[in-house]
Design a protein around this nucleic acid. Structure first.
Lengths: 333, 333
DNA sequence: AACGCTCCCGTGAGCGCTCACGTTACCGCT
DNA sequence: AGCGGTAACGTGAGCGCTCACGGGAGCGTT
């Protein structure tokens, strides 16, 4: 128990060498068990290392042998199942390449995100994820690190970004609702930012394509409870509403619960269609119809693009960076 | 576009310096924008860096400035909501300490886990998570790295391990079922390993404490579908069963679905109690009663212990490393 | 006795970067 | 003219480790 650390200097390989009466190289051999070392010597070195509490510096080690690359994955909220799925997909794609993934959950706070990016830059070889930071800020913080943004609503020239195209899917969803006889269709948009979401734009455009006025809209926090509250508010203001499209599945699930509490049968009295295609959606009652995104593909695509940027080999662009969403009908509509 | 990389040598700070006609230090100043540098010079350096595709080595940088520590988090399956919650909690606790967390999803494959550990050792300062590897294996691979295991069913002397104690909670659950009039109580255990789980032991002991014989048991894969199949099997073999306790909430949710399909009303015809306390459990219909674990506390505790090991300051031990589960009644029982 | 071989082990160099200093040039002030 | 002062740069050293060597001891072989 030699925690007799007076000065807080780090225990280096030389300390161990001195303590065991051998050279650095021998210590290195013992620790990484490559041969060319006597059994007793090896044991002595190992003991000394343990005694001193020696832990090799991964930086020094990484410096000399060209080590694996590692990317930072920035996620707003890992507990949101959508991001969980994307993260899992990215992790998987990264592992296939032998990469290490450092995960940062910003808790959906922009200031937190800034701090994260600041600290991330010197730790990883590239960054991929959801960033709310303005471009210049990212540029300044990353200083040339490859960056792959996901679902950046405003277009980005400076960085690669995976775009989510839900237009077709949302049109199909609204079309389906209209074909089922619905006319008064509302939307539960997210309440995060000040302006309406892109998904709301798609909704409006789909409505007008069906010859309907933009329906009534309520803002919801990205949580089940948020969805509940928002649906109640919407139905209070517009009781004649017979169908809702929601910003995402989490909100839709909240809407499902609220509908049940309000005594509205789904889909008979109220049809609900979400967005994202969460696996979770098939577990609730009734199973949620949704405009589904291929989250696996999304994560894989983001990693693929990162790889290309890292290799400076013909990065993907334009349409290759788009993930399309499509209507997946279950039972809620 | 100077991708005229003939030899694949890395672009270093000296290359940039030479190309910009300045010294390393000046390049460093430009990139980390600390002052003491002329505006035009800075721009010239930045241009050169971009031109050459220069990316600083995080190892070299980390070596000289004493950089943040980073831990590896090993998870069997991030898509399993339980592990998601633990991971999120660990991420949070780690961020509070300014740590970086490298996440590895082994996909529940033991061989994959071995490979992961092999590669992890030189990348992180400590490892925490769910390891199925035998102790000696871990010891050999980690070579002195601090390791904190979670929910290791067999006791471990060599490594710190966070133990999950569900005994009291399971007893309370069975007691509750018995008090509600149930006598024929089955269990849906997991099918992962060959021998029954510890949770099954708790179940048996709780049953006998209530004066009942060990109920019938069916094995289930850790998935919703697995739970469905297992409940059907159980009810086929033992149709008189009126209540089931399950290995975890995921399986319980499967049981809930199967019960509905079989026309059994929950909790009237069949009571269901899960294990884990997932947030997800409150979303299904009916909301799932469960023996709940404080996943947040679990993650935090694991990180706390890691911190102590890292500082070689009085690690926690014994009872301090136990997380207790307690019955959380909702509506499925 | 001389050679060769294997088994251990040590020595110098260098990975790419930052830090603490020097050094130079240029300005204003007395 | 001489001084101090500051802005803008360069120079050596060193972070902790591994790699490619080099070298001695001990053994057997001809």
């Amino acid at each position: 128990m030699a925690s007799s650390e007076t000065g807080s200097r780090r225990v280096t390989i030389d300390d161990v060498a001195r303590s065991a009466g051998v050279s650095r190289q021998t210590v290195s051999r013992a620790l990484n068990d490559k041969g060319e070392i006597g059994v007793s010597t090896k044991q002595r070195v190992l003991d000394a290392a343990l005694e001193l509490g020696y832990r090799p510096s991964r930086f020094a080690r990484g410096l000399v042998r060209q080590d694996a690359i590692s990317v930072g994955l920035v996620i707003p909220d890992l507990l949101n199942p959508f991001f969980t799925e994307v993260a899992a997909a990215a992790l998987d794609a990264a592992r296939a390449r032998g990469w290490h993934v450092v995960v940062y959950d910003t808790g959906d706070r922009v200031e937190e995100e800034r701090g994260t990016l600041e600290v991330i830059a010197s730790q990883v070889d590239a960054v991929v994820g959801y960033l709310r930071q303005p471009e210049d800020e990212v540029d300044k913080l990353m200083r040339g690190l490859p960056v792959v943004l996901i679902d950046r609503e405003r277009r980005t020239e400076r960085f690669s970004s995976i775009r989510i195209d839900g237009e077709g899917g949302v049109h199909a969803a609204i079309r389906h609702l209209v074909d089922s006889g619905h006319r008064r269709i509302g939307m539960l948009d997210h309440a995060g930012r000040s302006e309406p979401s892109i998904r709301h734009d798609w909704f409006v455009s789909a409505m007008s394509a069906c010859g309907l006025d933009a329906g009534s809209v309520s803002r919801a926090d990205q949580s089940v409870e948020g969805g509940e509250r928002a649906l109640k508010a919407l139905l209070t203001d517009h009781p004649a509403t017979t169908a809702v499209f929601t910003f995402n599945d989490i909100i839709a699930i909240g809407a499902l619960r609220a509908a049940r509490r309000l005594g509205r049968r789904v889909p008979r009295d109220l049809a609900v269609i979400g967005f994202d295609g969460l696996r979770l959606g098939s577990l609730v009652e009734p199973p949620l119809s949704t405009v589904a995104l291929d989250t696996r593909g999304l994560g894989a695509l983001a990693v693929e693009q990162t790889a290309r940027l890292l290799a400076t080999s013909s990065p993907l662009s334009g349409d290759e960076l788009v993930v399309r969403a499509e209507l997946r009908l279950r039972e809620s509509a």
